[in-house]
Nucleic acid binder design. Sequence first.
DNA 1: ACATATCGTTGACCGTAGTCAAAGAAATTC
DNA 2: GAATTTCTTTGACTACGGTCAACGATATGT
Lengths: 315, 315
Amino acid sequence: MSIDLQTAVVRRFNRSYTQRIGALEDSFLGMGAPLGTMRLLFEIGFRSGTVTDLRARTGLDAGYVSRQLKRLTEDGLVVLSTDPADRRRRLVELTALGRERWNELETRSAERAQALLEPLTDRQRGRLARALAEADLLVRAALLHFETVDPLSDGARSAVGRYVTELATLFPFAPGEPSERDAAELRAPSGRFVLAVDDGEPVACGGLRDLGDGVAEIKRMWVHPGWRGAGLATRLLRHLETLAAEAGHTRVRLDTNEHLEAAIALYQRAGYRQVDRYNENPDATHFFEKRLAGAPDGAAAPEDPGTYRGVVSSR
Amino acid sequence: MSIDLQTAVVRRFNRSYTQRIGALEDSFLGMGAPLGTMRLLFEIGFRSGTVTDLRARTGLDAGYVSRQLKRLTEDGLVVLSTDPADRRRRLVELTALGRERWNELETRSAERAQALLEPLTDRQRGRLARALAEADLLVRAALLHFETVDPLSDGARSAVGRYVTELATLFPFAPGEPSERDAAELRAPSGRFVLAVDDGEPVACGGLRDLGDGVAEIKRMWVHPGWRGAGLATRLLRHLETLAAEAGHTRVRLDTNEHLEAAIALYQRAGYRQVDRYNENPDATHFFEKRLAGAPDGAAAPEDPGTYRGVVSSR
DNA sequence: ACATATCGTTGACCGTAGTCAAAGAAATTC
DNA sequence: GAATTTCTTTGACTACGGTCAACGATATGT
């Protein structure tokens, strides 16, 4: 399928979906309060906290929010209180009535979705759900981006923690605590650590460290299990290679474990070739290397971006 | 997959898609004119005609449209002229400048869609496009509804015309012109003709006539080729059976041609059993009958709503 | 020919969403 | 302890989308 055709499909879908389903927000209408007010109520019900927090999440103007909250308070849907920790701040919470309304919004939204499914036969319903789940994963993945972060930041720690936990379930693997020394290797200028985050949750990560002689090593590459099959690992690998090339490296190495079959397949698809053991890592059984495009002694294999399902590199 | 799970998938998709893609309409913004004005411009560019027509298509208020058109005229984007056929009416058309702007909107919208695809690998792009195409078909189909119309109305004629044309390509089939006498049989109270329309185009049709003795006959069942595989034929068949039952019939018959294999499979899945020839129709080779649920001498086979691909009944 | 209906325009009006700046109260910095 | 910053509220204001009723011009039915 050509890119033009794909674009046309996305546009056609956009049109039928937004036109026919109407804005999702429509479910907020007809509840006696304007859309904006209900949207805020929904947001508060989703997670209550300070007004500042609420504003940050919604990106709305302070004055606007203040007035909406006033209205909601008058309607008895929320209560405002002073934050004891910082008495400038105010805390927002739903009242029992507010929670009731919130549930009503939830119900409406669910009914809306059911009304869409209802006319279809069982089989078509299943097909639609599968197609939307697939589209959802891919759309989310498409809009994700990799950010270079500090390897000891909360997000990085959380991602690496998950990575380690997952590896430990696949083969005997007992890493030490993440040390400052380990982390320093993955920090600029000689190293990198990239992270993709969705909704506050780490989704993928990977690190790069300098082995000297123009060689970079890829470390701690991981993709969240719920996000696999969307090409994230391929993109991540490519991203890391680009970062390595930008830092002046001409080759990338990595080690991995024989249990990580999907990862090995990924490396092979991406043009890595197996090499001899180049370190003492007891967890590693397989070693790979790739010459970066543009590097002298070129002959880098053409990339074949394929689907990948599974955990990635070891250590 | 349970209906609750399916509903959850739809809701999750709704949220990620509308939140992340933003309203499709956003591409109308930042063009120096408010959204509503641009939306109208887009609609005119899509198909120009009378103001009434435009209003009917958009569902907007007469006063509102009038003002928008005034603005667009002042900006030199459209021209208004009196309809020579009815001098109360006015014709709207884009100027060259208006067409230019319209193309700009198209470009923006396409860029938006491409930006979504761009980060994905080739393979994932293909997957997303396929998933969205599938979802598009099913969503459109789900929101379609069958309407009982006069068998000689424009829509019905158009649908039957397509049906006849299509049959003629599949086997020797030379029907006469649609006669008033034929049509009368498909008219209430003794008969029915149902039609599904999307965007002015006929998408599916089917008729019902009275054979006496509590038997109804299904005629001219057809689904638009571009809409096959979305369960429309199954739904249409079910709908016609319901209409027949409501009219007091206890059995439904139909004839078809051996070349229409998909149709025959559909009837069998839907619980029809083959019977002896019951008419002199030279185009028919196969004959089916089904006892309607609730009818005495019951034992109607359980329905298995399966996917259907192909033209439907003969004649 | 007259009554009636239709089509578009115009004026008056409304609520919603949102912006901006001023200001009071509380916290933090120096 | 004074100056500055942060958090929230309030008043003033704006554009936008939209509704309603009145009106003149044109068509249509009888």
